[in-house]
Nucleic acid binder design. Structure first.
Lengths: 189, 189
DNA sequence: ACGGACATGTAATCGGTTACATGATTAC
DNA sequence: GTAATCATGTAACCGATTACATGTCCGT
């Protein structure tokens, strides 16, 4: 249930409308916690009902500006310091690696090479964001910078891994001669 | 919708019952794709209805053994080679980092230090699995070994990152003197 | 005989996504 | 005037989790 805390965290910086928050979710927070519009508006209403935020101002076009309450801030701090982060237990990308023995060797290699390219693209994107942060010298952005560094290292690690994996495959011999290679599997049924 | 493909992938290795598959999901696949019992049994029925698997044998206690069909294998291969893996866009752990400016400096440091410890524990666990694989010399486990290497590198990267982040905080000065530190925020409201 | 493992299923609930729906205000 | 942006909401659906429910077989 972390949409709740992402929302509280953003409102802790400054009071904002659902619309405002949505921009932030789509831009700065997109790689860390994504949220859809319908989800966010519903959550804001739930948070208000729970007393963790209040409508601090109303503007044109039915705009409602929300502010975090003391209860909300307490809940947020509790979540940050006392709740163990959940370990990610799902990776689409890695699941395919497990089953790479079911496709032809060249297809498996193409998969790993393509991963490397994608990680490289992501790195370029993150580097762009890093430059923006470096320009505007906001001292509060120190934790944002730390989060971003995580992303950069993550991508570098994966790039190196994909290269290592390709080398590992090459070392294991060109194409296995036995019956378990992909080409032979269809013939078996 | 990758539970479907995880299931197909396991059945491509050998025909199995839902109960069998559940053991695999809880052990070897736990860090890559988790599935609950009720989810798995429902999925097997759906897969059978879609003709991607068939009930290949029935055993005692209502045991149903499923085998992948040609259609199932085709679907699985298509998913591996033609479908772009989804990029993960949610991290509980990183979201907290974004908001670390809302708690006291020592709490933020404790958070990062604790991350380092957890990553270390996970590394130990993965190393244990790596040793098991190394013992039994299954040549087919080459892709399992590659997936595992990803995990090991992932944990090492995060351990190094948490140390880097702690150093970065230390370099940024002991505790900021300005109004945005955590202690002052409650007083502002 | 009995406990533990084997074996499958249903129901309620939750968080998230997609699509639909509506309308006000502002800049040109 | 009108298009873009601002602004909020509802409904259907899907995948996943938790809890409940039931029964069989095997080893000791």
């Amino acid at each position: 249930m972390s949409l709740r805390h992402a929302t509280l965290g953003l409102l802790a910086r400054r009071p904002s409308s659902g619309y405002d928050l949505l921009q932030v979710f789509e831009k700065s927070l997109a790689n860390v916690w994504s949220a859809t519009q319908s989800q966010l508006y519903a959550e804001l209403n739930r948070l208000a009902e729970a007393g963790l935020v209040t409508v601090s101002a109303e503007g044109p076009r039915g705009r409602k500006e929300y502010a975090i309450t003391d209860d909300g801030l307490a809940e947020l701090r509790h979540w940050i310091t006392d709740v163990e982060p959940a370990v990610q237990r799902r990776s689409d990308m890695l699941l395919r690696v497990f089953f790479l023995g079911l496709v032809r060797r060249d297809e498996a290699e193409a998969y790993l090479r393509r991963r490397g390219d994608v990680f490289e693209e992501e790195t370029a994107e993150l580097t762009g964001i890093a430059d923006e942060i470096a320009d505007g010298d906001d001292p509060l952005a120190v934790y944002g910078r730390i989060a971003l560094e995580w992303g950069l290292r993550y991508m570098r690690m994966q790039r190196e891994w994909s290269e290592w994996a390709l080398a590992e495959l090459a070392a294991a011999g060109p194409v296995p001669a036995e019956s378990e290679s992909a080409e032979s599997v269809p013939a078996e049924r």
